[in-house]
């Protein structure tokens, strides 16, 4: 984890600095009329976060290199996978807003089941992907009085 700690520490420290100097001033208006300023707690927390992230980097840099510890927890294929998964999740989100929960749910389950090898059982894939989202939709609607989109 040593190398990934160094990289993630650097990223978090930079994110912390960006939050302190750009995001918090832009996202929180100051008010000095009463009690503590609204920026005090967020800035304190983020200064602490930046300091701990920097400490993580320094501590890992001072550690001796260990071959096992140098293994990256995420390889290129993992990064590609999470990008693809994010695209799938975003597509599911927009599909629900566009065509509704029932159709988007059928498509999402069918795609995920197929990706996990269930294309070998097409009947099961079809039954589960069609029945479950529709049953769930009407269960929420009638039993819990929650109208899914």
């Amino acid at each position: 984890m040593r190398r990934s700690d160094i990289y993630s520490g650097i990223v978090l420290a930079l994110l912390g600095l960006a939050t302190i100097f750009i995001i918090v001033p832009a996202g929180i208006s100051t008010s000095d009329e009463y009690g503590l300023n609204a920026q005090v707690f967020p800035l304190t927390v983020m200064w602490l976060g930046t300091a701990v992230a920097a400490l993580l980097v320094v501590q890992r840099l001072r550690e001796s290199r260990d071959a096992a510890d140098e293994e990256a927890p995420m390889e290129t294929k993992n990064w590609l996978f999470i990008v693809a998964a994010s695209v799938f999740l975003a597509a599911t989100y927009f599909a629900i807003t566009l065509v509704g929960f029932k159709i988007a749910g059928v498509a999402a389950i069918a795609l995920l089941m197929a990706a996990m090898g269930e294309y070998r059982h097409p009947v099961r894939l079809a039954l589960v992907s069609v029945i479950f989202p529709i049953a769930l939709y009407y269960t929420f609607d009638h039993l819990f009085i929650i109208q899914l989109p």
Binding site: M113, G117, F132, P133, I146
Partner: peptide, 27 residues
């Protein structure tokens, strides 16, 4: 697993929606 995980994914989306009654929860 190949049936359970896709089903849970959609159940989680429904649960996230219902907690806020909006797509914001899903996001």
């Amino acid at each position: 697993n190949a049936v359970l995980y896709p089903v849970i994914t959609v159940l989680c989306i429904a649960g996230a929606y219902s907690s806020e009654n909006s797509m914001f929860g899903v996001a």
